[in-house]
Design a protein around this nucleic acid. Structure first.
Lengths: 245, 245
DNA sequence: TCGGGCTGAATAGTCATACTTATCGATCAA
DNA sequence: TTGATCGATAAGTATGACTATTCAGCCCGA
């Protein structure tokens, strides 16, 4: 009874298959919003147009918009369409949004806000970690430090290990809220560390302070951990100021 | 050509209309997950069954599951079904999840974690607010304080004003990350303040410290604001310990 | 002229069905 | 015992239709 449908007859050669496209469409639209290609307050193309633009069915577009809606990026209303919400409504703690913002993280002072958050949270997390970290977590932290040390001139590898170091530290604080914050900090570090890790002497200095932090955890010394964490942040701030934003 | 459809013939009287049910279905499933009615690791009923259970179409169920998926609550795979993720994967910073958890916020030490976060963040936020708050924000804070004062024996009103006070404070820190954290803190306060505000003398003491905080902001004195914020938290911790968890 | 209700149109929301793809598990062969 | 094949299952995608909401413009009465 469905021969009248002609399932894929008229489509192009790329359309005969139905790959999983949900994620791509969501990311594409989310990226377009976060990069200001759709301005705040403006209305997106209507659903049927988005279907055409991305070559997918309305099902996919709708589910994508629904996801973006829960992230506070857009808001849909009948007869009006789907409008881009104010940036103050965006769920900035959402890792995907930060990813989509990419370098635009410097808008809205967001980068500075995250740095302030790090200065506030990380030393406390380090102190907690000194009391609560498992032996395994300290070992993982040590592993990340070794990867930093062994990265040599490979700035990419050094940065990757650096990010991991701070993520493990937050996890080792055994505070679930801190742990979730690591995804935000991760996003910010990606765009910050790479630059501040460019100079060799900076990397060596960073190695030293990170080492102190690991040792403080080993000795279960919360105050030393807090101090060492503060020193790593001092370095980060100094490098950012030097290399200029 | 659609008379063969019998659109709403067999449904109940409530089903003849098509209200916006998306939110309800999402909340219902989310609630069932957060309240452990669907255990971690277990498989949800399949989509078609969920359609029957809630009397909605697959579109609605799918979009609901998609939303829950982005919150890290569930994970869908073909042939397997939709399984409930580990709680460590849940996006605990999501306001809705906290709402759905309700009193179960005490699981996973989440409540304690949030309290630790408050102790870490709020004093810093208060200090920032002393430097950055607009006159309007200080006035709003003062308004919230007045509502606390005038609540009298109405514990509900007192708690509501108390929550607003802390939300305005975080907003006045002009740090976007802190601001977003207010939704988490909000959820925790709802379930904590009500109890700790039961005694009259506690409320009066709280009024005093909150007043000090407002004055510190007026005087643009970061250190005084930090100290006052710490004292509000001391009170909260003491009351929680007294009234027992 | 002004204001309030009516009406039409546009768009998201919902529904129903069909078909595709991925994956698990079992069966069978080497 | 191991490996590949096949079938069944459930999510993923596509499509077309209908419904509810709401905006904008119109008309009518005051």
């Amino acid at each position: 009874m469905d021969v009248t449908r002609e399932p894929q007859g008229g489509k192009t050669d790329l359309q005969v298959r139905r790959p999983r496209v949900q994620k791509n469409v969501t990311a594409a639209i989310g990226l377009d919003i976060c990069s200001d290609r759709y301005a705040v307050g403006s209305v997106l193309p209507r659903e049927s147009d988005l279907c055409e633009m991305y070559g997918v069915s309305r099902t996919v577009v709708r589910e994508s918009l629904k996801i973006l809606s829960t992230k506070g990026l857009v808001h849909s209303r009948p007869r009006v369409g789907t409008v881009v919400c104010e940036k103050t409504d965006w769920n900035l703690l959402d890792p995907q949004i930060l990813e989509w913002m990419g370098p635009r993280i410097h808008d809205l002072d967001l980068f500075g806000c995250i740095l302030e958050t790090r200065r506030t949270v990380e030393p406390v997390a380090a102190a907690f970690a000194a009391e609560r970290a498992t032996v395994q977590e300290i070992a993982d932290l040590d592993g990340a430090w070794r990867r930093m040390r062994d990265a040599g001139a490979d700035i990419e590898a050094f940065t990757r290990a650096d990010v991991q170091f701070h993520e493990i530290l937050l996890k080792a604080s055994h505070n679930q809220v801190f742990r979730q914050l690591s995804s935000i900090i991760h996003a910010a570090l990606i765009y910050a560390l790479h630059r501040s890790n460019e100079a060799v002497e900076d990397r060596e200095e960073a190695l030293l302070v990170h080492r102190e932090l690991v040792e403080a955890l080993r000795l279960r010394d919360p105050e030393a951990a807090r101090a060492a964490s503060n020193r790593t942040l001092d370095l980060a701030v100094r490098d950012l100021a030097l290399n200029g934003a």
